[in-house]
Design a protein around this nucleic acid. Sequence first.
DNA 1: CTGAAAGCGCTTACAG
DNA 2: CTGAAAGCGCTTACAG
Lengths: 343, 343
Amino acid sequence: MKRPTIADVARRAGVSKGAVSYALNGQPGVSEATRRRILAIAEEIGFSPSSAARALSGATAAAVGLALCRPARILGIEPFFMELISGVEAELSARSYALTLQVVADQDAEIAVYRRWWGERRVDGVLVCDLRVDDRRVPVLEDLRLPAVVIGGPGHTGTLPSVWCDDAAALVEAVEYLVALGHRRIARVGGLPDLLHTRKRTEAFERVCRELGLVDAVTVPSDYTGEEGSRATRRLLSSPGRPTAVIYDNDVMAVAGLAVAQEMGLAVPGDLSIVAWDDSPLCRLVHPPLTALGRDIPAYGAHAARNLLAAIAGEPVGAFQDETAHLTPRGSTAPPRSGERVR
Amino acid sequence: MKRPTIADVARRAGVSKGAVSYALNGQPGVSEATRRRILAIAEEIGFSPSSAARALSGATAAAVGLALCRPARILGIEPFFMELISGVEAELSARSYALTLQVVADQDAEIAVYRRWWGERRVDGVLVCDLRVDDRRVPVLEDLRLPAVVIGGPGHTGTLPSVWCDDAAALVEAVEYLVALGHRRIARVGGLPDLLHTRKRTEAFERVCRELGLVDAVTVPSDYTGEEGSRATRRLLSSPGRPTAVIYDNDVMAVAGLAVAQEMGLAVPGDLSIVAWDDSPLCRLVHPPLTALGRDIPAYGAHAARNLLAAIAGEPVGAFQDETAHLTPRGSTAPPRSGERVR
DNA sequence: CTGAAAGCGCTTACAG
DNA sequence: CTGAAAGCGCTTACAG
């Protein structure tokens, strides 16, 4: 099957190629009747303008890039990224933008991908995940003047626009809830320590525990995997004066923590309360279902995509604060047993 | 920052643009010394050829498309797709191909995306997931002559190349293992009934159970979600003569089934053995860890991508059989309790 | 081995 | 409102 070109449409419609272009792109320069006739013919012969030709004549590439920097085994199990991608996609396809995905091994590889995409003019802009403290990707993107929206912050985003949410506030809500239930020994299994939002959560955790007089509030750093989540939990539950509640920085580690508690013969929530970050179907899949800090991740992705498209269009875009995660209490949290409480 | 073009490289190297093109693409027509000098200059000024210009001059788009047709909530939680994507990606990036991803609502939308991609020349080929019986996408792709590799089969792939694995054999292994443990009442919670591999599994299940004389072997159709997995499990476990073992068509439903058993006060594996398809970290995340039928999904994706690139290059590609999933016994399977056994 | 030129399929000023 | 033409940045025959 031969692909139709703009010339085929022009011939059939008895107009110039320019007229077809104007009609397709909603530009002035053709009468409404002609426009409609041209669109009908394009539809009829199944014409879609070549994205290459379009990009080459100075229009956009109509594609947005997303580089994911996590090992395959984590990407697969953590619902976060696919949910984010779904939301990004929904926004992009509504505007006929494509999403170009690349899995990278580390930040250097990611930076190389950005440089290549920029040189190839393959994407009009990029979405940046997993913001770090003093992130090296930020100055590179600023330098290239490649439109970008950082998913994360606030702060450490340089002059780049961003979409962020207040993780500190959500964490405080979770701690206050546990304290209200009667917990005094609360621990946290944190995400990758280099990530900015991990740092913000850790600071918030330490601050609120100090304010509430919880002395042995400890954060065990981890890496979002079930393996590390189990290990961290085993360590916490084996320690003298073990916590009566643990907050996990993602759903995967929380589920792993639940399994460790069951394996050690501790009842959840009787002996141990569990709170998960990232409320996903995973949290409702286990027994008891997990109390979780959740928010609409697809919407988060959609907001990031929308702001990126605005930035590409040259509109001024700044930092956009998304909804704060809120706590959904489920079966994994309860007051500590009295023996624990008076100890 | 201005993007360097091939002319910039040519000027610096004191050669024609043609020479630069030959050097970059490993074509004959430039001396080895000149080629090296040109490559060094390209590297130095950060030149990557415009993918649009390249695609327009008849070379490939250097991109491959993948349309995913599942609702966001399932895409997020099922590790399969992200693992597949990781494998696809690994193969593609090694050859500097990009992956264009699109989430679609149904088959019609997916077909529309294929037509658009074809018209736009946006991708050189596509990977087709979730093969159905008499799949409508197959004739469309054949018609468009858009290179494609079907992930699934054998059969119902028309003239398209495919990558498939023998699900029937894997299912038989699982049933025989359960029977060897002493189970006689085995049920199955199946995936979406329209998918070809679901049908193949169902047929294999019915056949092997008949051969082994298991009379009330039943498959409850489901949709891969935890909700439906729970519902199906509740129904099975509430029935008179409830099964002592259940095989689930994915990991998510198996984990949900485990939670239902716990919620109903049934011990796993004492009262109920559970086998999951798609061995993912999810299966090792819960307590007890799930016995599972697993194989290397990233490798599966890599094979599909490799064959697609071969098809794009015009090489003859047929049906490629991937490794058969094998059973990894874990804590969720054991002989049924004697009370169950003699019943 | 190299240079000059056509052409891919669009978009967009520029004349009419 | 429309047509003819230049140009985007490559690749690839075609002469030299």
